[in-house]
């Protein structure tokens, strides 16, 4: 649904996006992930026809973003990073205006506006001036305007930025509910956002593609080792060496009463460890799998520490 090939964008000498390629399948939510100034907004602006690329090819919903910009703009919905709202308009009249410039047929316009007001949960504020509604509602208006032409592809630039935790959860729920027929590309610099909302991700940094794929693929391919973290009632120095004697253990580290036991990929030593603890009566208080911390993984990826 979204195809990007060797995209290049330069602002004068500054290279904002370098040789970027990725594909998003129909009906999926994908995240465009990267730290600030990674080129996320630039990429999205190119995909929506707001900015021309310096080189490369991109198509959204089957329309070339350069050659068929007008057709493209009719089939996509776009939420820019800064909400494009007119504070002196009411929510309803603003959405009506957007429906008009998105060329919704006059006969459908009324229904289209009512529909997005309902799906975005704006009913209670529809008659109020945009300047008088809360940040969370403004964000909803932003999403509503992107939905008004019933787009096949939604492009959302930082849809949860500046919201409080409760609002973030609501907006995420809203975005997830929009999935289905629609393909969604959303950008974020917050990792949790991606893991909770998206099916896959494109990770970029300084305009370079660092990794891309479905969420499972990404985490699986970067997981180098497996292990557990255990908390024991008895935590003398000798216990670490005791655990270290279990065959297959690659590394042991201790922090107060917590021991991290790691082993090579493809093994599972949990049974052996439990048995040892029971035999020696070490007092097991907690045991949890050592997931490779996804924040760590992300930092590793963007610093180039993990090969694709």
């Amino acid at each position: 649904m979204i195809e990007v090939e060797n995209l290049l964008k330069k602002y004068g000498e500054l290279v904002a996006v370098k040789d970027l390629s990725f594909n998003v399948e129909k009906g999926k939510i994908w995240g465009l992930l990267g730290p600030n100034a990674a080129g996320k907004t630039t990429t999205m602006r190119i995909l929506t026809g707001y900015l021309p690329a310096t080189d490369g090819r991109a198509s959204v919903a089957g329309f070339d973003v350069f050659k068929e910009a007008n057709e493209l703009k009719k089939t996509i919905g776009y939420l820019p990073e800064t909400l494009p709202l007119y504070p002196e308009m009411t929510v309803h009249s603003f959405l009506d205006f957007v429906a008009e410039i998105k060329q919704t047929p006059a006969s459908r316009r009324r229904d289209a506006v009512e529909e997005v007001i309902d799906t975005s949960g704006l009913r209670e504020v529809s008659g109020r001036l945009i300047k008088n509604i809360s940040r969370g509602f403004k964000q909803r208006v932003g999403i509503a305007q992107a939905l008004i032409n019933d787009p096949q592809v939604l492009i959302l630039d930082e849809p949860t930025i500046g919201l409080d935790p409760a609002q973030i959860i609501e907006i995420r729920k809203l975005i997830k509910s929009l999935k289905g027929e629609r393909t969604i590309l959303l950008s974020t610099h917050i990792l949790a956002e991606m893991t909770q909302t998206c099916d896959g991700a494109v990770i970029i940094n300084e305009g370079n593609l660092m990794a891309s794929g479905s969420l499972e693929d990404l985490t699986a391919s970067f997981k180098e080792k497996e292990g557990v973290v255990i908390k024991l009632r008895q935590h003398g120095k000798e216990i670490a060496s005791l655990l270290g004697k279990i065959p297959g253990v690659a590394r042991i580290s201790q922090k107060n009463d917590e021991f991290t036991v790691e082993w090579g990929k493809g093994k599972d030593l949990r049974d052996e460890i439990t048995k040892l603890i029971m035999d020696k009566e070490l007092g097991l208080m907690e045991m949890r799998p050592l997931a490779m911390n996804i924040e760590e993984l992300y930092l590793k990826i963007i610093s180039g520490g993990v090969a694709r």
């Binding site: 707001y50 007008n70 703009k73 776009y78 820019p80 800064t82 060329q103």
Partner: peptide, 13 residues
């Protein structure tokens, strides 16, 4: 200033 131009220029107009 308000960056509402982004809405206008990404609309089929």
């Amino acid at each position: 200033k308000r960056q509402t131009d982004e809405l206008l220029y990404t609309s089929p107009i």
